[in-house]
Design a protein around this nucleic acid. Structure first.
Lengths: 196, 196
DNA sequence: AAAACAGGTTAATCTAGTTCAATAAAAATT
DNA sequence: AATTTTTATTGAACTAGATTAACCTGTTTT
């Protein structure tokens, strides 16, 4: 069982915190327990928090008119998740963020985040770094989506996130990769031996 | 003719700079003139700079084996452009960044950027803000790519960037939107009256 | 232990978007 | 102003991937 100090080690990978700084950071977060299938962010409501996953798995998705779901992101241990357009600009969300497993997360409110950054430039640096990492990650994802076939996207995901691929329901993975469940099922059969 | 002080007004929209701070900022940039079709970033070479466009237009794209080009981003006046995975992590680029028109830009080296941020937390704040804006923008783009048809993506782009849509070659727009030039041409004919 | 639900597979049919190839129209270069 | 290069259009043939619908399996819930 990981406790909330996991986030201290995590932040320390990017900026070195003194014990009082670590304490200040920790006190800005609240621990939340989310049962499988429960949503912590819903369309039309603002998303006042960003979430750091301590244990478990979540996903962010948008629901289309016809009932289709499109997974925008996953988050497991040490990953962050929220609807960034809602959180950063404090506007109504367009996404759901829902637990794929029973999950324990630390949430940080938008207000507390501003306080942290105002209080200590190290926190400003930290949030700058994770925003840049997110930016670079998403640019890679956009490139993959524009350039690769469904089969190549799946193969690529398997290479990069073999454990995650086994951990999340296949229909969420298909919708993350931009294809239907049925087609992913066909691909898996066709690829058979080559990949796990 | 916009001169380099344009970037001062731009940064001032996010963080308020005193005259000496503005001076410090400006001195970190170098003005560069890029002729149409000239590349400032190429695959396999690191991208030591990020670019702020003063005048003109550029695009970032990846070239596939078969000769296809996939446009990752555009930049016109007041926009930034670079290969973020190369610039942020100082690794070899995978993209080209090339001028679509004769362009004047201000470039900031990775080294200078670190100096600015170390020197003054306001700059740290500024780069945090533009990274977050980029993140939110890219999350919107990923949603559009996953959820909309080619026709809807084009309509959407026309609504949001009507001037840009007329300014860049259509094949670059098609490749940005994730479709072939031929298909975009067909869409335009089909949509005819509805949209400009 | 039956019923209900969530997740996954299979196969037939269909279509949005690609490919290929030729042509046309603009724009840049001589 | 003629030639070359770049950009855009058109149509026919094709295919990666979607849709529909039925079925299967394991897991919760009653």
């Amino acid at each position: 069982m990981r406790d909330e100090t996991a986030i201290i080690s995590y932040v320390n990978k990017f900026v070195k915190l003194s014990p009082p700084e670590a304490e200040a950071l920790l006190s800005a977060f609240q621990k939340v327990v989310v049962k499988k299938r429960q949503s912590i962010i819903q369309p039309d409501f603002p998303a006042p928090y960003r979430y750091y996953v301590l244990e478990g798995a979540m996903r962010a998705y948008v629901a289309a008119e016809n009932g289709q779901e499109h997974t925008i992101s996953f988050a497991i241990e040490d990953w962050w998740i929220t609807d960034y357009n809602s959180y950063l600009y404090q506007q109504p969300a367009t996404m759901f963020v829902t637990a794929l497993e029973d999950t324990i997360a630390l949430r940080l409110s938008h207000v507390k985040e501003q306080e942290l950054k105002a209080q200590n430039p190290k926190f400003e640096t930290f949030f700058r770094i994770i925003a840049e990492r997110g930016l670079a990650y998403q640019q890679r994802r956009i490139i993959i989506n524009l350039t690769k076939t469904a089969e190549a996207r799946y193969g690529d995901f398997l290479d990069k996130y073999p454990l995650l691929a086994q951990r999340v329901p296949q229909y969420t993975l298909a919708s993350f990769l931009g294809m239907t469940t049925e087609y992913l099922s066909k691909l898996r059969k066709r690829m058979g031996s080559k990949k796990t």
